[in-house]
Amino acid sequence: MKKVLMINQSWCKGCGICAAFCPKGALEIVDDKVQRKEGTECILCGQCELRCPDYAIYIDENEGDTDQWAKSY
């Protein structure tokens, strides 16, 4: 079981809470939607999921493919 960071942009309202409380600064808001910042590392801590008021970002357990690992981004 590998964990992955999932973003549902259609639910994102761009409040920026996830990006502000990300301990690695791995998220950014572009055009009022959240996305992963290039060249940063996500440690899958789940702080963004805890505070997202719109449930648009979360950590999911991804079965199978071991290559799907957030750090490879």
Partner: peptide, 30 residues
């Protein structure tokens, strides 16, 4: 919906298990 890795895997439910279990997704986002 985007996945964090390079290749995008398609998932039918685009929310965490907690939200899927206890919320009414047809009414979300709030």
């Amino acid at each position: 919906m985007t996945v964090d890795t390079g290749d995008v895997s398609v998932k039918t439910k685009n929310m965490s298990n907690l939200i899927y279990k206890y919320m009414r997704p047809e009414h979300l986002p709030q």
